[in-house]
Design a protein around this nucleic acid. Structure first.
Lengths: 146, 146
DNA sequence: CGGTATCCATTTGGATACTG
DNA sequence: CAGTATCCAAATGGATACCG
C-alpha cells in the first residue's frame, strides 16, 4: 500500500477488473461529451433552464439534451425542479455529488482547450505520413499483381 | 479576466462555441472509455505490449484496442514502437503530451471509484420512484379513456 | 417552454476468420 | 504476437411532428 501512496489508489490491480468495472460503468454515463458539457456548464453557472442549457451547449439536439439530463438526474448528479407555471419553467442544477465531479471535469476541460492545438498538429503530421505511405503502396501492389 | 482567476479559463463564454468545439473535438477522441482506460493504464505501467494492454483492460476486443491505440497515436498521445523480431513485438507508451493527460484522467478515475457506489444508489432510488409512478399511471389512463 | 414519440441513417463494436 | 478484413446486430443520435 505504501508504494502507491502518491499514485492513484484505483489504478492498482486493474486486471482484477473491479476498478475497471466501476470506471467503465461511470464512464459509460458521464464519459460522453454531452454529459461533460452539462456538468461543466451547470458547474459554472449554478442554475439553468432547459433552453438556456440548449443554447449554451453548441450543437446539442433537444432529444440528446433531454436524455443527458435524465441520466444525470438518475445518477444523482443533477436536480430537476419543475415550477408549475404557464409557460412551464424547469431548472437544473448540480447536486452535491455533481459538484464534486466539477473539479475533475474542469481539469479535463482545461486540458482540452490547452492541448487542442497540439492534437490537431499531431493529426496533420500523422495523416500526411499515412498519405505518403498510401501513395507509395500502389507501386508495390502493381508489382505483386503484374 | 480577473473575475475568473480561480475559475476554469475555458469555461467562460461557452456560448461562443469556440471552447465547446475544442472540448467536443477532444472528447470525441479521448472521451470514450477505451481511450481513458489505455491512457490510465499506460500512465501507470509505463510501457506495455499489445496483449498486455488487452489483458489489463477488461472486456476490450482486439479490434477496439487496435482502433483506440491508432487514434491515440494519431493524436500524439501514444507512441508505437515495432521491434522487427519473430514473433513481432510492439510496445506502447505515453508521449509527453499523453503524460500530461494522465493527471486529469487519474482524477476522473479516482472520482469514479470513489463515487460509483453513490451513483448506483441514486439509480436504485430513481428507478424505484419511476416504477412507482408507472404503476400509478394506468389508472389515470383508464379514467381518461373510459 | 419543455418536453415525448417516432422514424430512420449512421456509427459503433463484437464475433469470426485470416495473415505476416 | 499483433494485427487486418469482413460481416452484421445493436446502439446512437438527428430530424420531425406533436403535446400539456
Amino acid at each position: 500500500m505504501s508504494l502507491q501512496d502518491s499514485q492513484s489508489q484505483s489504478l492498482q490491480d486493474t486486471s482484477k477488473s473491479a476498478n475497471c468495472t466501476a470506471m467503465s460503468d461511470v464512464l459509460n454515463r458521464i464519459g460522453d461529451k454531452w454529459s461533460v458539457m452539462v456538468v461543466g456548464i451547470l458547474g459554472q453557472n449554478g442554475t439553468l433552464r432547459f433552453n438556456e442549457l440548449k443554447r449554451m451547449i453548441n450543437g446539442v439536439s433537444q432529444r440528446m439534451l433531454t436524455l443527458t439530463l435524465r441520466n444525470l438526474e438518475r445518477d444523482g448528479l443533477v436536480t430537476r425542479t419543475i415550477y408549475p407555471e404557464v409557460p412551464p419553467r424547469v431548472e437544473y442544477q448540480l447536486t452535491e455529488l455533481g459538484k464534486t465531479l466539477q473539479k475533475p471535469i474542469t481539469a479535463l476541460w482545461d486540458w482540452s482547450s490547452a492541448n487542442h492545438g497540439s492534437i490537431m498538429d499531431a493529426r496533420s503530421i500523422y495523416d500526411a505520413r499515412s498519405e505518403a505511405l498510401a501513395a507509395s503502396e500502389p507501386r508495390k501492389v502493381a508489382y505483386v499483381r503484374g
